[in-house]
Write a protein that binds this DNA or RNA. Structure first.
Ligand SMILES: [Mn+2]
Ligand SMILES: [Mn+2]
Ligand SMILES: [Zn+2]
Ligand SMILES: [Zn+2]
Lengths: 142, 142
DNA sequence: CAATAGTTTAGAATTATTATAATGTAGTTT
DNA sequence: AAACTACATTATAATAATTCTAAACTATTG
């Protein structure tokens, strides 16, 4: 979803009714220069701040999952206990900064493609994701 | 933790009191040929079946996290919503079978080492984990 | 064997997520 | 444009996973 586009049309194209809530969520999520990572709680805050309008938590969950199913969002799993979503839906890998709990995209130059030599028999590979956990270089052993 | 070893000593070595519950959990987790993956619920069932003895859920959580901190267990994160633990604490990667929800270790021969060319400045890499999601090869698109 | 610090426990609390069912709205039909 | 219908939103309740609490218990130390 590029910027400045008509979200109403985009929603209709994939069979989602362009409701006020969904269009607002599109604005918050996709009307920006760069992709980003967020939790559901982040998003609820962003919506109520940017749109200055209340939205039901259930709607945020429903809509995020609808967008995920349509390929507009990807879910990223870190440490269990917390679900991150990503507006960058291309296949890519992540650094996770354990100091700040921040999820950071790997650039193509940061990591060589993963070479899988042998797959499970009779199965198809749906995704390959690398998660690199990093933390402060200091004496903080743990 | 190799098989047939004295779990009481092992526990003491790392400063954990060898209580009945902890020794029982060691038996269930480590007194076997192969490493394996489990959820907390799996483990509670395994303990009450194998040991024929009740154990508090809180104790299972406490003990699993104590073992994790001591490096006897690793936590593996799949899809959020579910935490798996691994008695194989060496650095290794996983297949996740989305049909059966089964976590499977990658063999060394299954995948080439991940080559990270550029890390985040000022950070140390704590872990690199690859998760390969697979599913039935049939027409089941999704 | 008494003292102490650490452990276990049942149950309550918390958190994230999903379900429910009443109300509202977009798209379509008259 | 009123009516109709299917889908969406909402507040709230329900569920599930995990953690907290505080009392009872136990391994270790002196
Ligand atoms: Mn955990
Ligand atoms: Mn999810
Ligand atoms: Zn990303
Ligand atoms: Zn494993």
């Amino acid at each position: 979803m590029p910027k400045n586009c008509n979200f109403i049309e985009k929603l209709r194209e994939v069979g989602l009714r362009p409701t006020k809530q969904r269009v607002n969520m599109c604005e918050v999520l996709f009307n920006r220069e760069k992709t980003f990572h967020f939790t559901i709680n982040d998003l609820v805050k962003m919506i109520s701040e940017k749109m200055n309008q209340k939205i039901s938590l259930a709607t945020v969950y429903n809509t995020v999952h609808a967008f995920e199913k349509k390929g507009y969002l990807k879910e990223i799993s870190i440490d269990s206990h917390k679900s991150y979503f990503d507006t960058n839906t291309s296949a890519h890998h992540h650094f996770f900064d354990e100091d700040t709990n921040e999820l950071i995209d790997c650039d193509e130059n940061d990591i060589d493609p993963v070479n899988i030599k042998k797959n499970i028999t009779g199965k198809k590979i749906n995704s390959v994701e690398v998660l690199i956990k990093v933390a402060s270089d200091n004496q903080n052993q743990k």
